[in-house]
Each structure stands twice: as structure tokens, then as C-alpha cells.
Simulated assay, not measured.
Amino acid sequence: MRDHAEDPATEAFVAHRSLLFTVAYEILGSAADAEDVLQETWLRWAEADQTQIRDRRAFLVRVTTRRALDRLRALRRRREVYVGPWLPEPLLTSPDVAENAELAESLSMAVILVLETLSPTERAVFVLREVFDVGYDEIAEAIGKTPAAVRQIAHRSRKHVDARRPREVVSPGKARAALASFQRAVETGDLQGVLDVLAPDVVLISDGGGVKSAALRPVTGPAKVVRLLLASLETVHGTLTSEPTTVNGDPALLLRVDGEIDCVMAIRTEDGLVTGIYVVRNPAKLTHVTAAEPLTLD
């Protein structure tokens, strides 16, 4: 029996799915919500008159952006009452993402946290323009603004992000080396070893979502960070294992207790030292760290 090929509409959606997921995730910082947006986009796409669509990619990006914006506005209200610091849902990323400096930076915990300080519209404009190089006219159509307004929003959001984003782009090799040193020191409980790999202005942010124990505010300075890390390890009941991995393009450790995922610990490095530690313990955010998600800017 001859295999039936997918219809052209389905083929087009599947061809652009990785791009659409990446757009939705960068706007939302949540893989689960990005998946919901893609489902809504598919329903809209399936209902559309394909003969009237000149540019399928542009149409799909436009619908995805609108759906993601609607969801982000709703999520912002929930995040205002979130227990403790909010961190993005970590994504297990493949080595090719880490090698793509532009994509890796845009996905990094540090940059997504900066994007959280933008308004929903500013964030969508920044992501579409700065990350995906979408034209002003196309962005205007997606968010319901004039091209002139989009240019102003893009300028304002770019200036805001540039003033707050990490300055140094670290090579994947240097990042992995810093992670290995950090992992050895943490696993052995070597107080001095941990201190030696932490930058003077290191910041640790932990997200338990009110479900798992986590610091309720950012912890700054090597001494305080070390005390918190070692104290957390002492409270573990069971066999703790750590596995080096990559999440959101950042070097990270996947920590398990008796084989069950307990948390993801991503790090940011500069000049060979750890400047940021992002610990995600909220179980609802640990569902996308078992298989790498296909991500792309194209």
C-alpha cells in the first residue's frame, strides 16, 4: 500500500514548528505555555484559507506572536503572586545550540530574566526584531501597532536590554571547563574549591515555586552562596548524583536524588569564574530536561 503524504498545510506547519516554538518560548519563558501556544496556532492554521496566504512562515510567526502575547499578559498577573524568585522553565538544549552564540545568548537564563523586566509588547518586539530579525512592517501587523511605533518600541527595548544583559559571550569550551571545576568542588564539599570558582559579585537565584524549599530572594556574594549551597547539600536524604548538561545554552548540572530529578542548576560564567547560579526546583518546570528541544532562529 502506498504511504499517504501529509497535506501541504500540515507539512508547512511541521517544517516551521521549531521556529514557532523558539519564538513562543522566548516571549514566554515557559516551555509548557509555548506548547499550548503552538496548539492554538495549529488550530488557527488548520482553519485558514491556504489559498489566501502568500507567506506561510510570516503568517505562522504572526499568529504565534499574537497567541504568545495574550498568554504572557495573563501569566504576568500570576507571576506577580509567585512565591519567591521566578526563573524560566529550563530547556535541555543540544550542543549545536550552545555553538550558536546568538541563539544561546537569547535563550540564556540571564537574558530571559532581563526580558522579564520588559512589558509584554516590548518583549515581543525585542524578540522578533533582535533575535529573529523580523521586519518592522511584519512586527507591526503581528502586534497591532504602526511600523513607526514598532521602531520606537524596538529602540527603547534594545536600550533597556543592552544596559542589563551580560557583557561577555563565553565560548562553550570555557563554559564547560568552569562547570567542571564548579561540579568537582560542590560534589566534594570543598569549601575553598567552591570559593575559588565564584566571582566576587556572584548571584544565586533559586526557584521552588512555593512547592520545594528555595531561597525567597537572590543570594549575593561568594560566602553567602557557598553557605547556602553546602547547607542545601547537607539536607539531602538519599543518594545525590550530578550530571553535566546544557540548558538554555548555559552549562548546567542536572541533580538527582535516588535517581529522581531534584533540580537543574545552570551557571553563567565570565573570565573563567561563575557569576550567576540559577537553581530551578519547582517540579512543574522540570519536565523539559529529559530530551533536547529542537530550537532555531530560521
Rank of each mutant, 00 (worst) to 15 (best):
F132H: 12
F132G: 08
A32C: 04
D190Q: 03
I277N: 03
W42M: 08
L233N: 12
T22G: 02
L233P: 02
I27C: 01
F21W: 10
V111K: 13
R79H: 12
R66M: 07
A154M: 02
T188S: 15
A185T: 05
T241H: 00
L191Q: 09
I205Q: 02
V97S: 13
E260T: 10
R167H: 14
A5Q: 11
L87Y: 01
A48L: 11
G276T: 10
E168G: 11
T290Q: 01
E243T: 14
K224R: 15
R256D: 06
T117H: 05
E11G: 13
V150L: 12
L91N: 03
R62I: 09
V257N: 06
D196M: 10
P95T: 07
R54G: 04
A215E: 11
V202I: 02
A110T: 06
A292H: 03
F13V: 06
P222Q: 00
H4A: 12
E130H: 11
E141I: 12
H16K: 10
Q192V: 14
G249E: 01
N282E: 08
P166Q: 07
L228M: 10
A98L: 05
V289D: 01
D250E: 13
G259S: 06
W45T: 06
Q39I: 11
A12R: 10
A34I: 00
Q183V: 08
S181Q: 14
V274F: 07
E40N: 07
R57L: 02
L20P: 03
E138S: 15
S18G: 12
A185G: 03
A291Q: 08
L28G: 06
E116C: 03
F132C: 11
A163M: 09
T239G: 03
K224H: 13
R71Y: 08
K285S: 05
I27A: 01
G144Q: 10
A104N: 01
D70A: 14
L254E: 06
S94Y: 03
A9V: 15
A24K: 00
I143T: 07
W86Y: 13
V127K: 01
C263A: 13
V186L: 15
E35I: 00
T296C: 02
L204K: 04
G276D: 06
P166F: 05
G208H: 06
R164K: 15
L103T: 06
A12F: 05
L103S: 00
V197Q: 00
L92Y: 00
L228P: 01
V111E: 07
T93R: 01
S30K: 09
E122Y: 01
G29N: 07
A46Y: 09
L115I: 07
L115H: 04
E6I: 09
L107T: 08
H16S: 13
L107N: 01
G173N: 13
A214M: 04
G259R: 01
T290W: 05
S242T: 14
Q192F: 15
A5V: 02
D190F: 10
S157T: 10
